[in-house]
Structure formats: structure tokens, C-alpha cells
Nucleic acid binder design. Sequence first.
DNA 1: ACCTGAACACCGTTCAAGT
DNA 2: ACCTGAACACCGTTCAAGT
Lengths: 246, 246
Amino acid sequence: MYMKKESARPIISRRSRPAKTPLSRDVIVSSALEILDRDGLAGLSLRRVAAALDTGAASLYVYLTNLDELHALMLDEALATVQLPKSRRLSWRDRLKAFLLSYLHVLYNRRGLAQLALSTISSGPRTLLIWERLLGLLKEGDVEDAKAAWGVDLLTLYVTAIAAEKSNWRESGEGPGRVKDALLSASVEEFPLVVAFREALLSGDAEARLDWALDIIIDGIVGGRLPAASSAVPRPTQRRGTRSKP
Amino acid sequence: MYMKKESARPIISRRSRPAKTPLSRDVIVSSALEILDRDGLAGLSLRRVAAALDTGAASLYVYLTNLDELHALMLDEALATVQLPKSRRLSWRDRLKAFLLSYLHVLYNRRGLAQLALSTISSGPRTLLIWERLLGLLKEGDVEDAKAAWGVDLLTLYVTAIAAEKSNWRESGEGPGRVKDALLSASVEEFPLVVAFREALLSGDAEARLDWALDIIIDGIVGGRLPAASSAVPRPTQRRGTRSKP
DNA sequence: ACCTGAACACCGTTCAAGT
DNA sequence: ACCTGAACACCGTTCAAGT
């Protein structure tokens, strides 16, 4: 199952390649994305990328500081294909939803990418462009600045999470089957509500649920309260924060 | 840096342990959680768990089918400590938020657990209990069944995603610093809105943002539209679904 | 039935040596 | 400056052999 291909062959026959394919961040990233498509995140390794480029893993360290950096570069590159709908006939809201759906599909359609998106802090140019577009759409909807800013965070995080969850289901074999089994075998004594809600919990396809959730979140961003305070305001009584010093 | 500890010592001195510590799923899981606490997800391996239990990795396969299963067991076990606030003086809404915050803190406080939560499909008894509690709270708020069911999904996914994102920041060294840098160095020509929104994008601490987002989502679940249709209803025109057969 | 050592097929990263 | 082979310190999983 492990293609050892051209391992013990002294005749290398460089056929088409012009001498070697000069290494660069770009060729490394696109090579890595090809491997991701074929073998998923589990099949992606520096050694495999290097092998595809006909070199050793050590060579990549001239262009990358480590595997994490490659991940971030891959993610940002992949996000280049997220698309704003052209049709000007749609409302800002429908275009926002279409854009988020495009984002979702980009993450979901490429194996392992959604996983990567959640474990990688990306802030490359493609990521910035997505923020730019989202801010533009929310501004079209006359959302106040403070709400738009926080809304971008909320929307991207939610969509990323959905993509990752769906990806998991696909990658790990059988969809939400395990959850379904757990629901069906839950005891009424211990989990009366879960049992009572069985059908409702399992109802609806992924798209209907996503659409519902997006509507809720968008409505909330548009109509909800303003972010409580800018960073300079003293907080009211709060429950034991994450900050380290008072 | 790699504690080779008691590697080449013929005198093993079983001190306190009663003959050996008999292996079982439970001891394996709690041993694994200890390692997770100390060394994070990157430091967790079957070999290390086995070493802590004074045996070889192969021995664990009597109790586990693979590493993924251990992950799922660990997650479910850790979720046991999520707590419903006792104080009956709080509104259902405040108790819901406190419960979700407890969930968040359980995921966040244990290193690597949030990551695990997003890459693992958990459906053990502790997970079911969390659904049970959430359904109970939403019912107290007189949320319609269909909305409550989908709401559980939305709330847990969002909180898990937040925990994972914050965990990433902590685990990967410097918090949202990279994002901040990207924001500060973004060009006005390319990303005018991002630049204009700089301050708003960075404003507010994590708690304020979380609180804002939770309010939006809860409001949406309470007041938003009903899920469009139960699974049996024909869908209106939809954009190219994920389903495989028509 | 349970446990084990050894082996297999991999990893990321570093480093001294080459060009 | 860029590339490389070899080495280091790990992985998960399987398997034949032991008790």
C-alpha cells in the first residue's frame, strides 16, 4: 500500500522537468495541497511533500520554519477560491449567505482543510480578503461598525466549525451514525429529554440546519444589542476571567 | 529533555503498587488525561500512556481499538466535570449561560482538550448528559421543541469552536498577536475596510465577545423562526446539496 | 484471556558535509 | 546560499510468542 515507486532505481530519467523544478515556497505549498487532496491531512507530511518534489525533507527547511507554517500557508492559499456572488440582484443578506456558503464549501470540499482551518491561525492575504468582503457586506446592510467587526469573527468561526464537524463525519467513516446510535440507545430514566427529543435532534438535513443557524446569527448581528463596551471601559462584576494580572 | 527515567535499571522496586496496577479502560483513560494535562495533545501518545502504566503500547490494544477511541473516551470522561449552576435564583437564561461557560472552561482549562473536542465525535454518557441539561434549560425558557433541538447543536458547536480557538492561541505561543500584526500591516489600498475597522476588530476582551455572541445566539433560538421543515417535507429550490442521490 | 518484545512503516527536525 | 544523507528521537499498529 506504500508506493515505494522509484526507490532502488539508478536510472532516474528526468524526462520533462527542466533540470529539477527549483524549490520555492509556492511549489512547496501547491505540492502540499495536491497531497492533501489525494491523501487527506493524515497523509500529508513534510517527507511526502519533499518526495513529490524529488528531494529530502531537510531541503524544505530553507523555505519553511516548520510544519505549522506550511499548514498556515496551505490554508491561506486554499482560501483564494472563496467567491463573492456576482449577481447584483441578490440582497446584501443573500449575498452574505452565499459568500459564507462558498467559504464553507472551500473548507469542506478539500479533504482535511477544515481541520486545518481550526488548528491553524491564519492571517495571510486571502484571509484578510475574506474579512474585507464580510465587512463590506455587513456595511451594505447598515450594520453598526462595532457589531460588524465582532460579527465577522462570529460568522467565520461558526462556518469553520460547521465545516470541521462535517469533515470529521466524512473522514471518520460513517457520518453522524455514531451519534444516532447513542441517541437511539439512550435510557429513558437517565436521559428523558434526550429520548423525547430524539426525532427533533436528528431532523433536518445539514443544509436546512445551516441555513437556520446562519439566519439566527445574521439576525442577531443586525438587530442585537451593541457590543457592551469598548476595551477602555471598566468591566462590571465578572466571573474570574482569563487574564493573568489584575 | 526526554525523561528516560527508569530505562536501564534492573532493580524495579514496585514500591506502592499492588503487584502491577491491573489494566482497564478506566485506568488507561485517567492516565491519558494526566498526560494531557502535563504535556498537551502533542505530548500524548499510546506509548507514553503505556509507559506511565509500566507496560508496552501493544498491551493497550486489549482495551482500545485505536488512538481515536482513546481520544473519544478521554473527551467524554473530561466532560463529567461540566456543572449546572445550583443557585435557583438565576433565570433560566443566566443558568444556560453559566452552564455553557462551565462547558467552555472544562474544554479550555485542560490543555489540548478543546482540540480534541473538535476532532472527535463524542457520544458517551457525559455528552448525552450535557444535551439533556441544555434541553432542560431551553424547555424552561419555553423554547419550542424543534428550535430547542437544533439550538443544542448550535450552542455546543459554537462554544466548542470558541474553546478550540482560544486554546490554539495559548498553545501556539503568543495569543492573537499574529492576527494583530496582520491587521496592523494590512495595506489600505488592498483592504480598506479591514484597515478602517482595525480597532473595532481588536476591541473587547474574550469574555465580552463571548457574552455578546451567546446573547445573540440564545435570542435567535428563542425568538427566531422555526426550523423550516421536518425531514419529510420537499425542499424548495436549493443550491446543489451535499447529498449524493436525488 | 491477557500481556509482551520486537518489528514494520512511518514521523518532524537537526546537523555536518557538500556544491 | 542552497541542498543533501544520515541520524536522532520519536510515532501507531501488528504479530508471534509467552503466561
